[in-house]
């Protein structure tokens, strides 16, 4: 019974039209986030809300089914999640501290540990997943 529920949850996907909705939300939020960086009129809570909505929009795209969702697409999707997960960990644990260390070395300042912003890491992971998934699909056309 528990295994059935787990399987059901692990296969959770949204219908295909949600992909367009997700892209719409993500583009609007991205526009507002970029605008905010230039103009800077939104309060802190609104910036947090926009960042969260941007991630949720991209998550919606990521979870939406393709028009024909078959076993091959499912295998490409799982490979893209695997790649994004490893890339995210590699970025957070190796690349970011390394770049920070080199930058400190060049500037001649003392080594300062990096503070990881979860938004950056999550955004990177989800973008890597979407780009890699689309790239894999195009490779097999």
């Amino acid at each position: 019974m528990k295994t059935d529920k787990l399987t059901k949850w692990s296969n959770m996907q949204l219908p295909n039209p949600f992909k367009k909705v997700g892209y719409g939300i993500a583009i609007i939020c991205l526009g507002l986030v970029v605008g905010q960086q230039i103009v800077g009129i939104f309060p802190e809570w609104a910036r947090f809300l926009l960042s969260t909505m941007l991630l949720l929009g991209l998550l919606m795209v990521s979870l939406s089914k393709e028009k024909i969702e078959d076993e091959f697409i499912i295998s490409l999707r799982s490979r893209s999640y695997q790649f994004a997960f490893i890339f995210g960990l590699g970025y957070t644990l190796i690349l970011l501290p390394l770049v920070n260390y080199i930058a400190d070395l060049i500037q001649g300042s003392a080594y300062s540990p990096v503070k990881n912003d979860y938004f950056d890491v999550l955004l990177l992971m989800i973008l890597v997943q979407l780009v890699f998934f689309n790239k894999l699909k195009r490779c097999h056309c």
Binding site: I68, D70, E71, F72, I73, S75, K137, H140, C141
Partner: peptide, 17 residues
Amino acid sequence: GVSRQTVNSIEKSRYVP
């Protein structure tokens, strides 16, 4: 009931069904 990409990938031995 699959995508054309699936058929193409199987044909080219890039995917085992």
